[in-house]
Simulated scan of single mutants.
Amino acid sequence: MSTPARYRKPAFATTSHEDTLPIPRAPASTSEAKKELKAAVNDQAAKTSKGFSVLDILRVLGGLALLSAGLSYLSTSGTSMTWGYNAKWTRMREWKGLFKGQVTLTDAELLSYDGSDPQKPIYLALNGTIYDVSASPQTYGPGGSYHFFAGRDAARAFLTGCFVEDAVPDLRGVERMFIPVDPEEKADATPETIEAAKHRRAPSKGELKNRTAQEERTAKQKVVQGLESWHALFRGDKGKPYFKAGVVNRPNGWEKYLPERSLCEQAEKSRPVRKYD
């Protein structure tokens, strides 16, 4: 009696990867299938979730910053994106001016920006720098209390206070208003002051030279400080809605074409009195 032949798997046959996987069990119902799917999703999320990443935090902070900037811009009529914090980089008007570009005007061209033409901004200049003061037409526009500054560079008048006589950019000799005078040289000097001067020891040539040099240095520093205070105002550093718009185009040595000016009466009277030990 012959033995039945046994089936043998060919030596070259390989086991498929699928053969080792468990056969999925068909869900008993739709409800059970949903539960299994939800469980699988939650399990996968738990495995891959790492909480908030640095990028997520930056996105949240960036969104809050944009929201705050937008609300500030609306509530301040476009003058600030940081709720009144007035650093230069935060001023919306500075960014507007940057994108718009800086203007370059001659003194003659600057005259037409005095507010008379409503289609043009109101400019004034200070020692060659042009500032946009359009935000205050009631002050610098026609009829305004400081309209005489609009459309011109009146740097000298900003220092001397002689708005009519000194509405020019020429600063030559203006430092004299800060150089002291002897008490007896003042217009209101008393007879006692004049008499006391006769008994005062006269300085030697060396002392006089040193005193003159020191007083001139101090006076020039005060001119710079005085101008800088006005520059800070028109740059917007003090909270005013003004900003730099450009520069005045002048040839080199332009001052020599103008007659040198003496101090106006008001500036002369305001000179400090020299003190003696």
Rank of each mutant, 00 (worst) to 15 (best):
V168D: 04
V168I: 08
P169G: 05
P169T: 08
D170T: 03
L171A: 10
L171P: 08
L171V: 06
L171D: 08
L171H: 07
R172G: 04
R172H: 12
R172F: 08
R172S: 09
G173D: 09
G173P: 13
G173L: 12
V174C: 07
E175Q: 14
R176M: 09
R176I: 00
R176W: 04
M177R: 11
F178S: 02
F178H: 11
F178N: 02
I179Q: 01
P180I: 02
V181F: 00
V181T: 01
D182F: 00
P183Q: 07
P183L: 04
E184P: 02
E184F: 06
E184V: 01
E185N: 13
E185M: 14
E185G: 08
K186F: 01
K186T: 13
K186P: 10
A187Q: 14
A187E: 15
A187V: 13
D188V: 14
D188T: 15
A189E: 15
P191S: 04
E192H: 03
E192M: 06
T193I: 11
T193S: 05
T193E: 13
I194Y: 12
I194E: 13
I194M: 13
E195S: 14
E195A: 14
A196E: 15
A196M: 12
A196L: 14
A196G: 05
R201V: 07
R201M: 05
A202E: 10
A202V: 08
P203M: 09
P203N: 11
S204I: 00
S204W: 00
K205N: 12
G206N: 02
L208S: 13
L208I: 05
L208T: 12
N210H: 08
N210P: 00
R211Q: 07
T212A: 12
T212S: 15
Q214L: 08
Q214A: 13
E216H: 09
E216P: 01
R217T: 14
R217V: 13
T218M: 11
T218P: 06
T218F: 04
T218H: 11
A219I: 10
K220T: 10
K220I: 04
K220H: 12
K220N: 13
K222M: 11
K222G: 02
V223N: 13
V223A: 13
V224P: 01
G226R: 04
G226F: 00
G226M: 01
G226S: 06
E228R: 10
E228D: 10
E228Y: 04
S229E: 06
S229F: 05
S229P: 01
S229N: 06
W230G: 04
H231Y: 12
A232G: 03
A232E: 07
L233S: 07
F234A: 01
F234D: 00
F234W: 12
K238G: 03
K240H: 10
F243D: 00
K244Q: 12
A245N: 06
G246R: 07
V247K: 04
V247A: 08
V248C: 01
N249K: 07
N249E: 12
R250I: 10
R250G: 02
